[in-house]
Amino acid sequence: MTPYEDKTIKDTMREEGRKLKDMNGKDKLWYIWEYYKIPIISVVVAIFLIFSIGSAVYNNRFETALNCVILNSQLTSQTTSPDDYFDKDFRSYINLPEDTKIEVNYSMSLSFDESAMSDFTYAELAKLSAMITSKELDVMIARKDSIDHFGKMEGYMDLKKLLSPQEYEKVKDKLYFVTAQETGEKMAVGIEIDKEDFEKKTGLLVDGPILSVMVNSTHTDTALGLIRYMFGL
C-alpha cells in the first residue's frame, strides 16, 4: 500500500491547499492547469453541452412564422429598435401568438464588387446561400446589387403572382424589376422602401432598401402580411 492510498479526500485537499498557499500566482495557475486540466476541460465541455442541449430544446418549443434578413444595414438609433418594429408591432398586426418566432437578422453584409471581396464577405455569401437553399429564409431587404444578384437567378417570387390585383395596383410605382438570366423574363421581384421612413421606424439605415420574398419561402402568408404591414395595403 502506498502512502497515498490510506489518505482521505479531506487529507488530500489539505495537502493540495498547503502546496498552493506556498506558490505565487503564476505557479498556482501552472500547477492547477498541469494537474487538473482534464477535470477542468471535462467540466467546460459538460457545461457547453448542457447549454447547447438546453438552448436547442428551448428553441424547438417555438414555431418560426417568418425569417427575414436585412443586408448591409447600419443601426443609427439608440432608442428605435428593429426588433420592436419587426417583432413586437408586426406580431400585434397579424395577431401572432407569443410562442411563435419572428427571426430578423440585420447583422449580415454583402458585396459583389470583386475588389471589395474578402474572406468575410465570401463567408457571409456562403451563409446566406445556405439559408436560401435550405428554405430557412422568407424575406430579404437589401440594396439593388443584392436583389439583382439573386433576382437574375430567379431567387424571388414574382410579386404579380403573390399580391392581389388591388394590392399590386397600389404598389406598382414602387416595384423593382429584374430580368432572369435563363428565361429573359422581366419580373417584379421587389418593392422599393422609402429609405428615410424605414430608418425612422426601424433605426436601420440601408442604401435604397428593397423588399423581396424568396421563391422557396415556406411562410408566404406571413411574408405577405409583412408587405401589407410595411406598405399599408
Rank of each mutant, 00 (worst) to 15 (best):
I191R: 01
R143L: 09
D6S: 13
M108I: 14
P39H: 04
D84W: 04
E63G: 09
L162G: 03
R61D: 06
S77E: 08
S129V: 08
S118F: 02
I50M: 08
E136D: 15
Y168G: 15
E103C: 11
D221Q: 14
D22M: 14
S92T: 14
L226P: 04
G208K: 05
I41W: 08
S164Y: 04
D83I: 00
A126S: 15
M131V: 06
K200Y: 13
M131H: 13
Y156K: 05
Y176V: 13
Q166I: 13
K174Q: 14
Y36C: 03
L137K: 06
A223I: 00
D11L: 02
L71N: 02
T80M: 08
I40P: 03
T2R: 12
L128M: 15
V44K: 05
M1G: 12
K172P: 01
Q78I: 00
K19L: 14
N60L: 12
Q78S: 11
E185F: 07
T76K: 15
D207K: 10
I132S: 10
D158M: 07
G54N: 11
V44P: 00
F90I: 02
D119A: 13
A188M: 07
P97A: 08
K161Q: 12
S212K: 00
G184W: 06
K195Q: 15
V43L: 14
L29Y: 04
E196I: 06
Y31C: 06
E124S: 15
K101G: 01
K26A: 12
T183H: 06
A223N: 04
S81R: 05
S42G: 15
M140G: 04
K37A: 10
K170V: 11
P97F: 07
V104T: 10
A46D: 02
E124Q: 15
W30L: 11
S55P: 00
K201A: 10
M140K: 04
H219Y: 05
M131R: 15
Y35F: 13
Y36A: 05
V213C: 09
E199C: 08
T8Y: 02
L226I: 07
K28M: 11
K174E: 09
L66P: 05
I141M: 01
G155N: 09
S109V: 04
P97L: 04
A223K: 02
T64P: 01
Y35I: 01
V139T: 07
I141F: 00
A188I: 03
P3G: 03
F150W: 14
L159N: 03
T8F: 01
T79A: 02
H219K: 15
R91G: 15
D197Q: 13
D99F: 13
S217M: 10
R91A: 07
F177L: 06
T121A: 06
T121H: 10
Q74P: 00
V57Y: 14
D83H: 09
A180L: 05
L226T: 06
M140R: 03
L211M: 12
L163Y: 10
D27F: 00
E5P: 00
I227C: 07
S77Y: 09
V171W: 04
S73Q: 05
T76R: 14
H219F: 03
V69C: 08
E169D: 12
G155H: 06
I141W: 01
